[in-house]
Design a protein around this nucleic acid. Structure first.
Lengths: 170, 170
DNA sequence: ACTGCCATAGTTACTGAGTATACATACTCG
DNA sequence: CGAGTATGTATACTCAGTAACTATGGCAGT
């Protein structure tokens, strides 16, 4: 349920219609998260049903606006940190864990393969960031790239740690 | 599509029935990822439809086994690193990005709130890991905890970096 | 012996996330 | 002027995930 709140956030900048919400959302995320139009409209339908937005159908196009409820919901989302939530299912983690079930050696191979790819991916991103980033990228894009790189670094560190733990038990 | 492959991975350990697949999967992930039974069976239905597993209905309970196709698919999944994939939608990132759209100050408040919570969460996990971990936890649980802590650290570093970038543009 | 609880085993119906595609109109570039 | 592209909306579909139900067998306590 993140797109839902994302759309509310866009609408907090003022009423707009579906297509515009989509493009605004994509721009806010520096273009990394594309939205399918269909998803926007169905999500808006649900938001309307739940009293978070209202629809003005009278003009040419359908214009959505935030309601009081919607604003409160949005404010809660921005403030609230997800303390108790179950950790998001992570594909890399799942791969290693299931591979581990099939034996230490298999897990080590999976770790190695992913480390190689992740490393080169990270280097590419670093280079791109150094060369073009500061000149061409918006603040949003820079922030997104920071996140992607830090995430990749953290994944790599984790792979190393997994390997260490596996070798300790051999 | 991670549960799908997760179930295949469990089945690669030998034929078993739905409920057992569920419990095995949960055990493999150190108990952090619970599966709803319904999801297991519907996913197995799709896997059967796609020729990844076969169902033996003759006995008391329904026993699923991997097919050739299923094994190949699974091997591909374990080997292949997701190079070109779109970055996973991350709730924290989305919060900060949309908040940024509503103004620098708002973004700074959101960052600050999340940093506080994340920091204490991380400390809790660190303490738990130091005190109980090595004695009671399985290898899977330890590995999962590693991932959660590294992820939290990376998120914190990212929040710091966001703040720095925001203050640089003020 | 009975009762209630828990684990095992499976089914069904539902919501929500996400994709593909169809169908308009309008602008714009060669 | 026509082809392509941007804007705008709608609908049908698959997959992910949850809730709630049935049913059976064991076993713990009274």
């Amino acid at each position: 349920m993140a797109v839902r709140e994302g759309l509310l956030a866009v609408l907090s900048g003022g009423p707009r219609h579906g297509y515009q919400i989509k493009t605004d959302f994509e721009q806010a995320t520096g273009g990394v998260w594309r939205l399918n139009v269909g998803q926007v409209y169905t999500t808006l339908d649900r938001l309307e049903r739940d009293g978070m937005v209202t629809l003005d159908d009278s003009g040419e196009s359908k214009v959505y606006s935030l309601t009081e409820n919607g604003e409160q919901e949005l404010a809660r989302w921005w403030e609230a940190a997800p303390l108790d939530e179950a950790p998001p299912r992570d594909e890399l983690m799942l791969k290693v864990l299931t591979a581990l079930d099939r034996g230490r050696d298999h897990a080590l191979r999976v770790i190695e393969a992913h480390r190689t790819v992740l490393t080169s991916l990270l280097q590419q991103r670093r280079r791109r960031m150094r060369e073009e980033g500061p000149l061409t990228d918006s603040l949003a894009t820079q922030i997104v790239n920071d996140a992607l790189m830090l995430r990749a670094e953290s994944d790599l560190r984790w792979l190393d740690q997994c390997e260490a733990r596996l070798q300790a038990t051999s």
